[in-house]
Computed example of a mutant assay.
Amino acid sequence: MSKADNGRQIPDGAIETFMLPPDGLLPNNQALPVIVYIGALRDHPERTEQIFNDNGWLNSWQNGVFSYHHYHSNAHEVLGVMSGSASLQLGGDAGRTLAVSAGDVLVLPAGTAHKLLHSSAGFRVAGAYPGGTDYNTRRATPDDLAAALPEIAQVPLPDSDPAYGKAGPLLEAWGAGG
């Protein structure tokens, strides 16, 4: 284990990163990987939104995940599972399906498609955006794709990790925070 600047432990081997190729009308992000922190906030999942806010990821909310493919072309997004469990599809129909549960955190770079496949009763996530970006919501349409591609390339890198702060693994994985 190592420690982030906020003193929270970063469990060894509990981080997964992967790239998602474009999937038809869903662009995904061709420069930055998705990052999944497995069980990162399992000790206090009810504090997920506050932890994101404390680390500079703002404009937060609590709810579920839309049951259709969608993405945000002007903002990176973090999703933290506060309660319950779910199966989420990332990257479109040819993408990856992830089983998530309370304490898991997913960092989705701008353009990454995501949707809910199914969830347990009481499934709830907190979402937030670096610096409180006012995000858009795009779907799998030709017009949205045409508008999204130039926007995705312009989204700035965050200066902190939503779960671990200024010294978190996201900054290294995305080459940010220099």
Rank of each mutant, 00 (worst) to 15 (best):
L149Q: 14
N55F: 02
L58P: 00
L25P: 06
A173C: 10
A173W: 08
S160N: 10
G175Q: 10
D93M: 15
T17R: 10
V36R: 06
D23L: 05
T137F: 15
P11H: 00
H44C: 15
L58G: 02
Q30A: 12
G178M: 07
V34Y: 00
K166A: 13
V36P: 02
G111F: 06
W57V: 02
G56M: 06
L20A: 10
W61M: 14
A148Y: 05
R124E: 08
V81F: 02
A126N: 03
G132D: 13
A163N: 00
K166F: 13
A176T: 03
Q89Y: 14
L171A: 06
H118S: 14
S101D: 12
Q30D: 12
H70V: 08
V81W: 00
M82R: 08
E46H: 08
Q9E: 15
H72M: 11
D104M: 06
P45E: 05
G103E: 09
A163C: 01
L26R: 10
H70R: 10
N136Y: 04
S119C: 14
P169C: 07
G175Y: 10
V155S: 03
P158A: 01
L58R: 04
G95T: 03
G56Q: 05
S119P: 12
H76G: 02
A113V: 00
L149G: 12
D23Q: 09
E16K: 14
L145C: 14
R138M: 14
G131K: 03
V100P: 09
N59W: 06
Y68M: 15
Q9N: 15
N29L: 05
A99Q: 15
